[in-house]
Simulated scan of single mutants.
Amino acid sequence: MSRLEPERKRLVLNDALPLSTQCFALARHLAFLAHSDKIDALTAGAAFRGPDAAEVCAAALANYFAGALLMPYGPFQEEARRVRHDVERLATSFNVSMEQVCHRLSTLQRPGHEGVPIYFLRVDRAGNITKRHSATRFQFARYGGACPIWNIHEAFEAADRFLVQAAEMPDGVRYLSIARAISKGEARFDALRLHYAIGFGCELAYASDFVYSDAIDLRNPSPLVKIGVSCRLCDRADCHQRAMPPIDRRISVDPNRRGIIPYQVE
């Protein structure tokens, strides 16, 4: 994607990648070149147990800098409110990708100038969460896949289309959940293409601030899909998509009765 050659004072960018990816890579290198002292101070003050964690944190800070440089806080927040968080319009306005827009929206929590609390994540075809960030109470699975009835998994089957879902977590909090499939890679015939689904959303109390809420009736959202963190952490006994029992509940098997799943959660 990019390579910095300090001895030659040259930065090499892969010109087969989208312009938004090249600009983000350039901004990320600029973070280390111009603000390495601040990054080092922040990682040193975090008192990580090992050097690997500090390096990962430094990379995350550089990525945050890149997003803030390409999508400045004030102008980006104002435009997001004006277009009701229309991700496609924001991507066009700031010459960035939809994934970059969603990630940036989830970081707009500056004290005194907070934006709508938003969660954001990226999932691969195997269901692994490869990127996550949240300013909401929404809980992500730390290990393994996410809830199978969440619309982010369905996004792979509906390319180039936003999916909108009203969902309720086990704690009773309801969310507006939006999902979209994306692909990443170089613009050439034999390029390796990476396929993901991105998900983002907010609590239903803020849903009217999103253009996507026009697809549902906020007064009586139906169907209201009851999702969970993951099967191991979800205690919904009647879920038809359960892949494994919850870790804190007993199960029983009735030889005279067979439901959709082969056991009952006590």
Results as ranks from 00 to 15, higher is better:
Met71Val: 00
Met71Ala: 00
Met71Pro: 11
Pro72Gln: 07
Pro72Val: 04
Tyr73Gln: 08
Tyr73Gly: 03
Tyr73Glu: 15
Gly74Trp: 03
Gly74His: 11
Gln77Asp: 02
Glu79Lys: 14
Ala80Val: 05
Ala80Gly: 07
Arg81His: 15
Arg81Asp: 05
Val83Ala: 04
His85Tyr: 15
His85Ser: 07
Glu88Pro: 02
Glu88Met: 09
Glu88His: 12
Arg89Val: 07
Arg89Ser: 15
Arg89Asp: 15
Leu90Gly: 11
Leu90Ser: 15
Leu90Arg: 03
Leu90Phe: 10
Ala91Thr: 11
Ala91Ser: 15
Ser93Ile: 02
Asn95Asp: 14
Asn95Cys: 11
Val96Gly: 09
Ser97Thr: 15
Ser97Phe: 05
Ser97Arg: 05
Ser97Leu: 06
Met98Glu: 15
Glu99Asn: 08
Gln100Pro: 00
Gln100Tyr: 02
Val101Arg: 12
Cys102Leu: 02
Cys102Met: 13
His103Lys: 05
Arg104Leu: 00
Arg104Lys: 10
Ser106Pro: 07
Ser106Val: 08
Ser106Gln: 11
Ser106Cys: 01
Thr107Pro: 02
Gln109Asn: 12
Gln109Val: 06
Arg110Met: 09
Arg110Ile: 08
Arg110Asn: 07
Pro111Ile: 03
Gly112Asp: 06
Gly112Asn: 04
His113Thr: 07
His113Phe: 13
Gly115Leu: 05
Gly115Glu: 01
Val116Glu: 02
Val116Ile: 03
Ile118Asp: 10
Tyr119Ala: 07
Leu121Val: 00
Arg122Asp: 02
Val123Ala: 03
Asp124Glu: 08
Asp124Pro: 00
Arg125Gly: 03
Ala126Glu: 14
Ala126Met: 11
Gly127Thr: 00
Asn128Gln: 06
Asn128Leu: 12
Ile129Pro: 01
Ile129Val: 15
Ile129Ser: 02
Thr130Tyr: 01
Thr130Glu: 08
Thr130Val: 15
Lys131Pro: 00
Ser134Phe: 04
Ser134Ala: 07
Ser134Trp: 08
Ala135Arg: 09
Ala135Leu: 06
Ala135Tyr: 02
Ala135Glu: 09
Arg137Ser: 11
Arg137Phe: 01
Phe138Ala: 08
Phe138His: 12
Gln139His: 09
Gln139Arg: 15
Gln139Met: 14
Phe140Cys: 02
Ala141Thr: 11
Arg142Glu: 05
Arg142Gln: 13
Tyr143Glu: 14
Tyr143Asn: 04
Gly144Ser: 10
Gly144Phe: 08
Gly144Lys: 04
Ala146Trp: 14
Cys147Tyr: 01
Pro148Val: 02
Ile149Trp: 04
Trp150Pro: 11
Trp150Thr: 09
Trp150Gln: 09
Trp150Arg: 00
Trp150Lys: 11
Trp150Tyr: 13
Ile152Asn: 07
Ile152Tyr: 04
His153Gly: 13
His153Ala: 05
Ala155Arg: 10
Ala155Met: 11
Ala155Asp: 07
Ala155Phe: 08
Phe156Asn: 01
Phe156Leu: 01
Phe156Cys: 02
Phe156Met: 05
Glu157His: 11
Glu157Trp: 00
Ala158Ile: 03
Ala158Tyr: 14
Ala158Thr: 05
Ala158Phe: 13
